[in-house]
Design a protein around this nucleic acid. Structure first.
Lengths: 238, 238
DNA sequence: ACCCTAGGTATTGTTGAACAATCCCGCAAG
DNA sequence: CTTGCGGGATTGTTCAACAATACCTAGGGT
């Protein structure tokens, strides 16, 4: 008898837990840049905002920690990590190893499986024409996730998802989205064409050069960002 | 109430949370094989055994989920995952990508940095002479963790740790530890010698053959284990 | 004036109990 | 034999409180 009400327009069980929904909301805020690096996420205040209990919120924190979007510091709270240059080098090193290997060992490609990649490329090109660089970045991430997904390995997909999520953290530090994302659009299209032609070795080589270049551009942007004035991070922590 | 007791055992705060300690204990039970795959971990019973609250226990579950040692099923509980053949192939695929890349890109090796590897090899050889195949397996894991550690990448180390922990789950399914672990001893020594000679390319190639062979042996063992009669798993729980 | 130490306060870590939602199992009906 | 329906057990979530720790501020020594 207590049941019932669920059938109507009420909040459906959603096949996901409250912790996951809270994590979704936090993930959005982090990737959108609303929560800036090094900011402490207060349990007390987030409980009010997300309308979940402290325990559930902490479980959401764990979820996001798993994705690399938050870090725990015992007795001090959770923080959005700030990536430094070493982190970027580290991330790209792992990324090259994973992505290049995934492409290098590809077999039995057909046009059907390339379809999601082509959709991402088209999205990136359209967004670039609109000047929506954030969406270009998002399409680029989706492209690489689909690219790695061709390997058909669950664990490789997981590592990649974590990698890209963490990498996205670096984008908010940087204020030159166009120079950063624009070159990727053409590179992604070139990659798809190489794969469509069955040239996996060529695609792997192109991808490696692509990633090395992307890393260099990001590093340079990060250094410029930090060098100029330095302590310009006057952030009211409300 | 029952509290207090904490003063006697550990004077120092331990620098770790109760959830981590509970996770440590669970991890031990899983890797030692006390908790068998597909067994559900009841919250109620583990609360009594580990002397933590349900919330803390659930946080420990999350921690181990991150390591791949447990899986969550919504509204059904947590389970020790049972690796099937696809999982093994998946794990080894990622493992080859990571380890071979780590070795292939090694630079500036000197004898000092090889020291931990030599210690693991010696441990493996000594344990093999004693017939302690479980310890041979442990030394082998330590060897590979140190091997990958030479790359000096935090995230690669993390992925590797998770990988090896998950791989260990497969060992308990298998009842022929000697045939499985014995060949690794000599292979590990050969790898160290190649690295000491500065032949990283040779080492990378040897490692790839090594891992392919290791995967094949594990797969065969798993198939034999499952094919024969099947329901021989008369395991007294607790 | 500076450094170091001590105490107060805010925040996190952990607990236990309670309730709601969901799943699993056995059983009756077709 | 399959199908639909309770009843009981387990997980999911909330709440309120206490303990432990870190941060901040004030006071004393040099």
């Amino acid at each position: 008898m207590t049941g019932g009400a669920r059938t109507g327009a009420g909040p459906r069980p959603d096949r996901s837990s409250a912790a996951e929904r809270a994590a979704d909301e936090l993930r959005r805020r982090i990737t959108e840049g609303e929560l800036t690096p090094q900011a402490r996420l207060s349990e007390e205040s987030l409980v009010d905002v997300l309308h979940v209990s402290r325990n559930t919120l902490r479980e959401a924190f764990r979820l996001l920690t798993h994705e690399g979007l938050l870090v725990y510091r015992l007795n001090r709270g959770v923080f959005v990590p700030e990536l430094d240059e070493d982190d970027l080098v580290d991330l790209y090193r792992l990324r090259r190893a994973i992505e290049c290997d995934a492409v290098r060992t590809l077999r039995d490609l057909d046009e059907t499986r390339l379809q999601p990649l082509r959709a991402d490329v088209a999205d990136g090109e359209a967004s670039a024409r609109r000047g929506d660089w954030r969406q270009v970045g998002t399409a680029n991430m989706s492209f690489h996730r689909h690219l790695v997904g061709l390997a058909g390995s669950r664990r490789i997909d997981e590592v990649t998802a974590r990698l890209l999520a963490e990498l996205r953290l670096a984008f908010h530090i940087i204020d030159i989205p166009q120079e950063l994302h624009e070159p990727n659009v053409a590179r992604n299209r070139a990659l798809v064409e190489l794969l469509a032609a069955g040239d996996v070795a060529g695609a792997a080589a192109a991808l490696e050069a692509y990633l090395l270049d992307s890393e260099a551009r990001l590093l340079e942007a990060l250094r410029e960002r930090r060098a100029p004035s330095g302590g310009a991070a006057a952030d009211a922590d409300r």
